[in-house]
Amino acid sequence: MSNLNQDVSLEQEIQAADNKNKVWKWLFISSAAFMISWILFPIYLLIVSALSSAEVVNGWPKAFVPEFDMETLQFFMNYYGVLGALKNSLIAAVFTMVISIGLGTPAGYALARFEFRGKETFRMMILLTRAFPMPLLALPLAVIFINVGLDDTLFGLSLVHAALALPFAVLITSSLFLGIPVELEEAAWVLGCNRWQAFMKVVMPLALPGLTASAVFAFVISWNEVFAAAVLTINNQTLTAFLVQSLSSSPAEVKFAGGLILIMPAILFLFVVRKYLFSMWGIANR
């Protein structure tokens, strides 16, 4: 009898726990849905407006279903120099990524693993490159670039963008390496690896998702930067330098279509590297 009673109370407890779980689950799902729509809804509106004709974009009420009017997008595709600028933007962004990862990873590793004089100062100083506004730097930079022959080249532009992206690359990678136990590396040394091999075979695979994240950062910084790109390039303008400023004084439907073209490559890039980002956040590979 007493056993039976116990069972009943146990069942009730399980029931209560279940209910509690359900509430949490719903809370979780609804907040996730909210956060997803926070990101996706504006992009959705952008797509709808980009695929609509001028009358619909300027009309009221706003449409929520695209009417697949390609006129504005087509105008862009035929617009002089858009494809070239798109290519330039991609090249500059990839250069920036390579430079900032190539320089940022060793710097981050050094900050994480070694003790040296002025380490804290270095950590602060590296943020200083972001302390000066671009319009202030662009003029002297342009003068120097013209003098050394880097003017109007994507490589030169990538150097500037890499300087902007480096603080993030260094700080992200250093905290990344801090999170990887030094014992793993030591074990690799004991088992016969030299420092470089241990880094490549043990630390690197663990750090890859984080490195991807900082690469994404570098890519996005380069992709979004307008002022330096506009001043430092003439014949090799990037897409943002080419479009963003002209867009601000263009009619609404052109703004939407241009906006779509500007965000598309960045979204595609994120899609390609999502695997590494997911594994960093502890979600299984898919």
């Binding site: 319009p135 662009a138 003068v143 013209i146 003098n147 003017d151 506009a230 001043v231 003439i234 400023q245």
Partner: peptide, 21 residues
Amino acid sequence: FLPQEAGPFFSRIEAESRAGS
């Protein structure tokens, strides 16, 4: 034909004139 916003427009012209190229 390269249209440009006023800010970069001024910077570019001034930079070229200072660098003498």
